[in-house]
Each structure stands twice: as C-alpha cells, then as structure tokens.
Design a protein around this nucleic acid. Structure first.
Lengths: 356, 356
DNA sequence: ACCCGGTCCGGGAGCGCTCTCAGGGCGGCC
DNA sequence: GGCCGCCCTGAGAGCGCTCCCGGACCGGGT
C-alpha cells in the first residue's frame, strides 16, 4: 500500500536549489525581489521534487486559509432536491477556483446543526462565508454575523437591506419583484382580466417579493385570486383547485415558481381547461427540465442562477481583498477606489413558451 | 468593523485554568488520563474564553485534516442540474458531520481542471476523496489514484472491479442491472411482448448495466427495440420516435432513467398512444418531482441516493480509521477484524405508479 | 577613496498545536 | 517502614511555513 511518502518541504527544495528557505518561499509566492536565474533554479527544484506547499503550515502563520464556507440551511428536503443549489454551487465553484480558493460545504439539517456551523465559522477555519438561508425566522444568519466572518448572503435576507450590527448586509438576489411584474404585465397584455397568483411560502423573501410584484400590477386584485402555495407541485395543485372552485372564470395564473406552475397545469388539464386558450400560465425560475418538459412548455421568468453564485463569490473575495489591504496600509480611500461591496440584484427575463 | 480579535490559544486556556498546555490539549482531545477536577477546571476555562482549537496548527503536527474532498467530474451541465448530486451530497454531509469531518467540494469543468484537482489531492490537504466520475474515458480517476489518496468512488468505475495499481477499487453503486431486470420482468408479467429499451449514454457504466439487465430478461430481444438515449427528456423523445417508427406495435418501454421516460411519455401522448393501456412505461431513479409529476405518474426503479452518499462516506472514514490504526500498531490482523473496505451495491425497488 | 542608498539573499524567530519523556506523588506489598 | 511501580502532570521540541531584519554586494556621487 503506497505509504504516503513524506512530502518534500521548503527546506528540501531549498537544499536542492542551493538557496535558503526564505528564497524558495519568495519564489513560490510570486517571486518578487528574487533575481531571474535564481527564480529559474528554484522553479526547477520545485518541479523535480513535486513540491506542494503545506497549507496548514502556511495558514498557521498567515492566518489566511484560501477557503470559504458555503452554508446551506436546508430544513426541507424539497429545497435541496431542485437544481437551484447545484447551479449556484457551480457558479461559486468557478469563481473560487479562479482565485485558488477552496469550497467547504456545510449543510444544516436542523437547529442542532446551527451551533456546529456557528462554531466552525467562529473557529476561523475559513476566510469568509456564503450563506443560503431561506426562511425569515432562521436563526442561522444571526449566529453567523455573531461569528464575525465576512459573509455574503444568497437571496435577500429577511431583515431587510439596512445595516444591522456591524457593516451592511451584503447579498445577491434576482429581481423577484420586477420579474413578477413582467410576468403579470405579460398576462395583462394578453388580454387576461382575471389573473390569479399562486404564491410561494410567505416566510421566504423571494415568495414575498414575487407577491409584491404581482400586486404592483394588479393593484386591486380580488384577494380570492391569491392563494398561498409552497413551491411544490402538490402545493400548486392544491392552490389551483382552490382557485378554480372560488373563481371558475379565472383566465390566467402566475405561479411563484415552475414547480407549482406544473401542479397547476395538471389540475387545469384534469378539469378540462385548455392552456393557454382558456387559462394562461406563467411560472418562475426557468428550471429547464421542468419548464421545458411541462405540457405545454412553460412560459416563465428566468433568473441566471449560476451567475448569482459567481457574483456572490466575487463579492466575498473582493471584500476579503479590500479588508486585507486596509489592514495593511492606507487608511480610508480604498473604499472610494475599489468600492465597498454592496448587494447586487440581477435582472430577470421573461421566457415565452407555449403556456402564455 | 469588528476586527477579528486574536482568538484565545491553548496557552491562554492553560493560564486561566492554572494548568499546562499539555493538559488542556489532553482535555480538548477527549480528556483521557486527566483527573476529573482538572478536566472540569479546563472545561470551564475553555467555555469562558470561547476557545476553539486552531485546525491549522493541529494539522501541522497530526497530519490529519478531518476533511475529505468530494470530486464531481461534470463535463455536462445536465448531469449536475438533476437532484442526484444534491441528494448524494446530503448523505455524504450527514455522515461526515457525524465524524467531525469537513466536506471540501471540487467541481471540475473540463480537462484543464483535472490537473488542479490532482495537485490538490496530492497536496495532502484532505484525508481522503469521494469521487464521482461518470464517463468511461475520464482520466480523472487515474490521476486520483496516482495522488495516493484513499478514495471511494460513486458508481462503478469503468475499469471494472478488479484490483489495479495498489489496493482494490472501492465504490458504492446501486444494483443497476438487477433493478433493470425487475423493471423488465414487471413489464413481461403485465403480458407485454414487445418490450423496448431506451438506453442511457453507453459510455457510463450505469447505462451499460441497465442495458445488461434488460438483456438478461429479453434474451432474444429484437435489436431494433433498443435505442440509445442520453438520459435527457429530449433524448427520450428522439428515441421514442425512432421506436414508434421502427416498430409501431411496441407495447412497453423501459427507459434507463426518469427524464428520458418523460420524453417518451410526451411523444406517446403526441402520437395518440395511451399509457399504460397501449404502451406501458417504466423509468429509473425515482427522481421524485419528475416521476411523480409525470403524466401519468411514472412507475420506476428507486435507488436510495442519499444512502449511497452516506455509505460512501462511511466506507472512506472506516478505511481511514483502519489505516491509522494499522500504521500505529498491530501489523496485519486488523484486516481480519475490521474488514477491509470493499465495494457496496445497494438494492433497488420497483415503485408502481400509473404508467405500468 | 569613502559613504550612502538600494537591491537581493539568508538567518532566525515564532505561528498554535501535539506528543514524547521525565519527574512527582501516592498506593500496595513485602 | 521502605521500595517498587503506576498514574498523572509539565516541560520542551518541533511540525513547515512566513516574515522581519541584518548583512553582503553593487553603483554613483562627492
């Protein structure tokens, strides 16, 4: 069994290149202030020995880890089973990789895990955190702010945009409200007059924002045309049934996500309503397998999930850089130059397919 | 900006508790061989100061990291966008958490990333690796074996079960072949005689194994009833069209996964075939939103994805333990006792819904 | 010829932890 | 009562790296 041979150290490389440890270190970390021939010699020695720096030793002194935690608070299975996080992770991973940072994934399974995550973050094992927390009453974000770790949130957190504690809350989200407005406007432009809304769970800001967008357009909507769903197909079915019972003449539905739109679609079919002739349907997310695979294919609001992930990572890394520089040198003006990281809201686009 | 106050060290705790560094260390790491009153004092000091061990310092000397890498080779977007990995990750995460290990996620975006992953793994930053590599020709597994890191694969790797290089290849997979057999037998039991198969991409072992299972039952199947798909709904549609054109009297379809089954369903509906009356359809995976949401709901073969993840992690950790013990003490018989980790193949179950 | 500034390299301390080893205390047994 | 041995604790070295600082060396100005 290939016993892990002790890997070469800086010392070994130094010996082989005939220089000091310090010089090798300099070369490995960029090579500033070392003359070319030496750089070359060291590089070769590194190559020949297959030297890889020991991250633990390095962190011990630099207090940097080149790693960020991604925290996904996931009370319900459902949430995680949709491709949302996968895409987000992809975006994050790409950006982190480009900056030689590692991605440490922390999934929480319930309240008992919160303490664990808090401890880990407070333990200073990572340079920063990217946090996905969906529910308004989630204690996790608070814990994390307490840990004093630079953090960027995925999705607008529940407590609003204002500063709280130290520094502003930084998040990346898509324009849920604007996207919803676009969807509803489209339905109106189609000549629909009885436009209903199947919401998401209203303890999540994304659901609330989409509802607000709906209301922005349907300013005096019949309250009976708004039914709370839960982002699942089953919830969409239930809501659609309620809707049809309450108000059989409904001629359009804006569902807060694609999954519930699918449920609605099924009920409509079952009840003999044609889509889009009798009832037009629009979803949200543009989850491809779902939206494209629906019958009929779903008109929906697209958000660029992967891009959101990428931007979260970028924001965090930029903040870390700034922080590093600030500590080191100039006092104030870094802010004016690099710009303090602030939240980002990405635009959405309406994707027209057959359902509306 | 809450400047990260320098966190308390072992030394500080020792001072506060009025003992030596070594004693605190012992307590923190289990407390064996320290008398109760002292343990208590130290515990209190730890609590009061909010001491968290510095993992970097610890790794530096122990050469353990309490972290494992999860490598997901992901040439195609599609693969990652299905909930498969999400569930797997969940299982892995749970198991690792229970053993106080961290999960470092490495996603590869193409060949240029392979070197990076290889370097990282060889760099000894993690104790082991869990690797998902789907394609037969993927060079990544080779690289990883080269890195000399304990590894467990997700899904049977392409090179078969035999030993290769050092030590046997350890993997966790579901019984693709057996599950396929069950599905096809069910169709036969239903009285269907012209049973077709839409395969997955045949450069993946899971697709090959499912095809083998199909053939096990349909020993002399008309080769025209086997069409290659690609695990996507679109691929399923294409395959189904081919099938109907070639052989209109087909009365059952076993699709290699739920997604392609959905595509097939759509084409069947479009061509006016009733499911299951005219054509029975079975999928594979039991991806809930897809299978349950299909019209009609899909009969399919379930595999416990989360459990597979959990078992991968368990296998790896067990291997690490064993390794640690072997190095430390007794020479050989550890193998007989703990049992060398060997591959695991989980059973599947047929879930009957409406489509067959 | 001397000094001064700048550039480049090496020596050495120390990051926070674990682990070995030696020593102190105490009970048991002759 | 004396001695042996065991259990517990503390001292100290050192993991591999970074970074500060001092020394060597070079060139130009006086």
């Amino acid at each position: 069994m290939t016993e892990a041979v002790s890997r070469p150290t800086l010392e070994a490389v130094a010996a082989r290149a005939g220089v000091s440890r310090a010089t090798v270190s300099r070369v490995v970390n960029g090579g500033d202030g070392v003359r070319e021939p030496l750089v070359e010699r060291v590089r070769r020695a590194v190559e020949e020995l297959g030297y890889v720096p020991n991250q633990a030793a390095r962190s011990l002194v630099t207090r940097r880890h080149d790693a960020v935690a991604v925290v996904i608070a996931e009370p319900e299975t459902r949430v995680f089973a949709d491709p949302f996080f996968a895409l987000q992770l992809r975006g994050i991973s790409k950006e982190l990789t480009a900056h030689d940072s590692q991605l440490v994934l922390l999934l929480t399974e319930g309240p008992e895990d919160h303490a664990r995550v808090g401890r880990y973050l407070a333990g200073g094992h990572v340079d920063g955190a990217l946090v996905f927390s969906l529910h308004l009453d989630d204690p996790l974000p608070g814990l994390i702010r307490g840990a004093g770790v630079p953090t960027v949130f995925g999705g607008r957190p529940g407590w609003g945009d204002g500063p709280r504690g130290d520094g502003p809350t930084v998040y990346v989200d898509c324009d849920n409200r604007g996207g919803a407005r676009d969807a509803v406007r489209h339905l109106v432009a189609l000549g629909r007059t009885r436009v209903a809304h199947i919401t998401g769970p209203l303890d999540q800001t994304s659901a609330v924002d989409r509802l607000d967008g709906f209301r922005d357009v349907m300013v005096d909507a019949d309250p009976r045309l708004i039914v709370e769903g839960d982002f699942t197909p089953a919830g969409g079915e239930r809501a659609m049934r309620v809707l049809l019972d309450r108000c059989p003449e409904v001629d359009a539905v804006f569902a807060a996500n694609d999954l519930s739109a699918c449920g609605a679609l099924r009920v409509l079919r079952e009840r003999g309503r044609r889509v889009p002739e009798d009832v037009a349907v629009i979803g949200f997310d543009d989850m491809l397998p779902v939206a494209e695979g629906a019958d009929p294919p779903l008109t929906t609001v697209r958000q660029d999930i992967e891009e959101m992930g990428r931007l979260m990572a970028r924001l965090l890394l930029r903040g870390l850089d700034r922080r590093g520089r600030d500590e080191a040198g100039s006092t104030a003006p870094g802010k004016a130059l690099g710009g303090a990281p602030s939240s980002l809201v990405l635009p959405t686009t309406l994707v027209r397919r057959a359902s509306a």
